[in-house]
Amino acid sequence: MLLVVLEHDRGAMDEAAREALTFGRNLTGQMGAPLHAALIGADDIDLVAEAGAFGAEAVYTVVSDVLADFGPEAWGEAAAELIRRLEPGAVLAGGSERGNEIMAQVAARLDLPMVANCIDVQADSGAGEWTMTRQQWGGSLLEDARLTSERPLLTTGLHALAAERAEAAASPSVQAVEIDLDPSLARTMVKDRVVLEAGVTLSTAPVVIGGGRGVGSAEAFAPLEELAAMLGGRVGCSRAVTNNGWRPHSDQVGQTGTRITPEIYIASGISGAIQHWVGAKASKHILAINIDPEANMVTKANWAVIGDLHEVIPAIAAEVRSRRS
C-alpha cells in the first residue's frame, strides 16, 4: 500500500496534498498496490470525500487533543506511529513547507531516509532500490537519486504537477485509529494566528507587477504600486530589491521568496536570474520590461517592452485609465 499523508489546515485540504494524491495514483500503478491516505488531527467527511475524489481507497484518521491544531512534532509522531502499524510500502506527502516538515519528523522518528521534492519516481522493480528525479536549488537544478530503504519516504515537488481528480472517485473506507500521544508533543503546536491582510496575497494575486534593481529606489516603486492597485494585483520584487531594503522580504519572488501563480506577471527591471525565475515560472503569462533585450527575463517572457520602466509603467497606467473612462 502507498500511504499519502494529507496536509490540511484545520480541515481545509492543501493543494500540495491534492498534488501528492495525484502523484501517488501514478506510483501505485507501478507498485501494484492500493492508494491509502492518512488524516492527522481531522476526520471531517468532506476531507475523506475529497481524498476519495483523488483516488484514495481507504482513509485512516487520527484525532487527539494533542492534534487539536497543527504541530510538527505531534503530527510527525502520529504519522510515524500509523506507519509503524500499517507498514505501507512507501509514504508520500506534498512538497509544501508543512508537508516536508512532517515527513522530516517522520523520517527522524523512524530513522529512515527521506527524499524531498521528487518530480519523477521509479518504484523498486526488484533490485531493492528506488530511483527518482528530485529538485535541488528550488527547482533550478535536478538530481537523479537512488534510494535504498525498506520504506521510501518521499515528498513531491510543489506544483511540479497539477492536481487532478481520479477518473472514477473512490468512496474510501474510513478507519479511526487510536494513538496514545504523549501530551508533551503539544509543545510545538500552533499557539496563535495573526491575520495581517485580508484579500489577495502575493501567492494568489491574479496580476503581479514585479520590480527589480532597475527600479532604483524604494520611492520609485510608487508607479508599480499604482498599476498593481488599478489591476487588483500585488507588487512583487527580486532579491536585489529586498537586499537593498527597498521592499519587505514578503514581496520577494523566487527560490527563497514566494512562488507566484498569476494570470500575468509584469516583470520590470529584473534580469531573470535562475533563482528568481523558479519563483516566477508558474505564472500563466509573463511580460518583461527591460532596457536590455538580451536579459533572461526578456528571452523567457511571452511579451516584452524594451525600454525604461520609469517611462513604460506610468504610460501603461495612463492607458488603462483612459480606456476605463
Binding site: 518583461a288 517572457a301 511579451w303 524594451i306 501603461i316 495612463a318
Partner: peptide, 17 residues
C-alpha cells in the same frame, strides 16, 4: 518561448493594455 516584442518605450503602452 517566442517573445513578442510589443515595442520600445512608452509607445508600447496600448499594445500592453
Amino acid at each position: 518561448t517566442e517573445t513578442v516584442i510589443l515595442g520600445n518605450s512608452p509607445e508600447a503602452a496600448p499594445a500592453v493594455v
